[in-house]
Write a protein that binds this DNA or RNA. Structure first.
Length: 269
DNA sequence: CGGATTTGACCCGG
DNA sequence: CCGGGTCAAATCCG
């Protein structure tokens, strides 16, 4: 329907048009995602789903960037949050979810009032992996009244940057779009989002999106095990590993259901 | 091979 | 004591 406006229009209109197109693209991606879920071969399906997820992701972040640019409102938290919020609230078939975000103060582990009270946010989503952060799984536990286990994740860069961000993922049901309650604990102290490069006119030149960053210097620790777990050994960086992860156990749990999707993206540094 | 995941033990607060 | 959260050695997988 809407045709692209003539170039003589003010930038705001052009931006609106871009947002509109982005929304359309998001919907199409959602549909494509559904279609892709029908691919019989597991490997191909997952790969396709991952790709479509990235497309959605890219459009979501572009969308949020454009929108935040226009609204310029106060950032509630982080850019990533905004991006994800935009992503999840596209309200179209495909990725929709009731976002129940609430904050609550909880005393930290060894109790200690007056210390950094962790920020906690709970979000109900069907795509627990789509927050474009690198998470490293560090535990899994069967919760008493839940029929699915709860998965524990830490920011993949927590070792290198003291990023305290964590998240707990718990599947709620096994519906066609399985829902997951994701609880975020602490904000990311590592930077994450990509730099905004919205060259909206004239000389393009450039690297629109580039994730190739040679940085990323893993501690590189060799197996120096030897004992059992002891209390926090002062400065020993027991580098476990970095990376994203997802509901692997969840996937294996429901043979018939297709799992949401993968999403290897996000950079902290 | 390196590193991400698994999995059971450990820890701690209520 | 129970239940939830974390650790870390073993294992798996690219």
């Amino acid at each position: 329907m809407s045709r692209s406006p003539s170039p003589s229009q003010p930038p705001s209109n052009r931006r609106d048009a871009a947002i509109q197109e982005l929304r359309r693209g998001t919907q199409l991606a959602a549909r494509l995602q559904q279609q892709v879920q029908l691919i019989p071969e597991l490997g191909r399906r997952e790969a396709a789903v991952a790709n479509v997820s990235e497309i959605s992701e890219a459009m979501a972040s572009s969308l949020s960037m454009l929108q935040s640019e226009s609204e310029h409102s106060s950032e509630s938290g982080s850019v990533a949050e905004a991006a994800w919020a935009a992503y999840s609230s596209d309200g179209s078939s495909g990725v929709r979810n009731g976002a129940v975000a609430r904050a609550r103060k909880v005393r930290h582990r060894r109790g200690r009032l007056g210390e950094e009270l962790p920020v906690i946010k709970e979000v109900l989503t069907e795509a627990p992996e789509n927050d474009r952060f690198h998470w490293r799984k560090y535990g899994e536990k069967k919760i008493l009244n839940a029929e699915y286990t709860r998965l524990y994740y830490k920011c993949g860069y927590s070792e290198g940057h003291k990023c305290p961000a964590k998240k707990y993922v718990q599947q709620q049901n096994n519906g066609d779009p399985p829902l997951f309650m994701v609880t975020f604990v602490n904000e990311h102290t590592c930077n994450t989002m990509f730099p905004d490069e919205l060259t909206s006119s004239s000389s393009d030149s450039s690297q629109v999106l580039d994730f190739t960053k040679p940085s990323l210097s893993p501690p590189l620790m060799k197996g120096a095990p030897g004992g059992k777990q002891e209390e926090e050994a002062s400065t020993s960086v027991s580098a476990q590993s970095y990376g994203y992860n997802d509901s692997s156990s969840l996937a294996s749990k429901s043979p018939n259901g297709d799992q949401p999707n993968f999403n290897p993206r996000a950079r902290c540094q």
